[in-house]
Amino acid sequence: MKVKTEIVTGEKSLSSRYVWRWPLLINTIALIGIIAALVGHGWLDMLSWLCLGSSVALIIYAYYFATSDK
């Protein structure tokens, strides 16, 4: 997983698509995870762990490993 973490320069406001694409993606994955284990077991349980686990992994990555240059 590679998340760009450099500071975006420029005063111009960026489009809302830019602002929301990552939050939308990660939260859609999390919601799939929450629902998966509710509608089935077996591989759907595993899908659920994977999806919610990706949220946790992203937080750990952003907090401990991503470099911020400012």
């Binding site: 998340v3 760009k4 973490t5 450099e6 500071i7 975006v8 990552w22 939050p23 990660i26 939260n27 859609t28 999390a30 919601l31 929450i34 919610l52 949220s55 992203l58 937080i59 990555y61 952003a62 907090y63 991503a66 911020s68 400012k70």
Partner: peptide, 30 residues
């Protein structure tokens, strides 16, 4: 800022704000 940026080399409060926003937005659906 870029998504999920945590500015660690600045003021403690900036790091705190970044952490609040990063963790908050990632976990919002849960």
């Amino acid at each position: 800022l870029s998504f999920a940026t945590v500015r660690k080399n600045k003021d403690k409060n900036i790091k705190r704000l970044d952490t609040h926003n990063m963790v908050g937005i990632i976990t919002v659906s849960w």
